[in-house]
């Protein structure tokens, strides 16, 4: 007796979909659509995310046969979504990325923080001190202001919680480069959150 596979792996679904089983492709869409939408929102905007979502799954459909299993299927889908988001941003860029350098931490001549411990600590509580919706709007806005290279690395590593190794593989760069980009993004974003509270970074 053949027991139906109640929860087939991504790879099994990909093989079935490549062989023309449209229900397998539908299952892939069901499994990944919410995650891809969230990723698209973080890499572009709520307005652009629906188009990125559609582009992503059309690309997944067209390129399923080229999935070689060299990376996890989820990482492969995320790579397609990340590229779709980047293409979309280039096509619809409304404004150049502006510098967030002003939010980098400040040091005196001896290399010591100029802010006090209390000032430096307050960012940890920004989500308790600001209105939830205000923070959500500001967060989306500032992530969109990051340079593309920083935003991709930060979103994948810190917001989507991927490992540094997986992000490096997905973006085709060294792990050290991922760490450097994520670090710069964290410093700028940390300083921005501090500035929202009227406190120097």
């Amino acid at each position: 007796m053949v027991v139906p596979d109640a929860d087939p792996s991504d790879e099994t679904l990909a093989v079935r979909a490549t062989a023309g089983d449209s229900s397998a492709f539908e299952a892939i869409v069901q499994r990944y659509q919410a995650r891809v939408f969230r990723l698209a929102c973080r890499l572009t905007s709520d307005t652009d995310a629906p188009d990125v979502l559609q582009d992503t799954f059309l690309q997944v459909y067209r390129h399923l046969s080229s999935f070689r299993g060299e990376s996890q299927f989820g990482t492969w889908v995320y790579r397609i979504a990340t590229n779709a988001a980047l293409m979309h941003r280039r096509a619809t860029a409304r404004r150049p990325a502006d510098s967030l350098e002003e939010y980098l931490p400040q040091f005196d001549d001896e290399g010591k923080h100029t802010a006090t411990p209390t000032e430096l600590q307050v960012v940890s509580h920004v989500d308790e001190l600001l209105d939830r919706q205000v923070l959500a709007d500001k967060a989306r806005d500032v992530v969109a202001r990051l340079p593309d290279a920083y935003r991709e690395a930060f979103v994948l590593r810190d917001l989507e919680d991927m490992s540094t190794a997986d992000v490096a593989h997905l973006l085709g760069i060294e792990q050290a480069a991922v760490r450097q980009r994520v670090h710069r993004a964290r410093l700028m974003l940390r300083g921005y959150l501090s500035d929202l509270l009227g406190v120097k970074p």
Binding site: R42, R132, A136, V143
Partner: peptide, 9 residues
């Protein structure tokens, strides 16, 4: 903080 603030359904 940013992960929570950018959650989307």
């Amino acid at each position: 903080i940013l992960r929570d603030a950018t959650e989307a359904t």
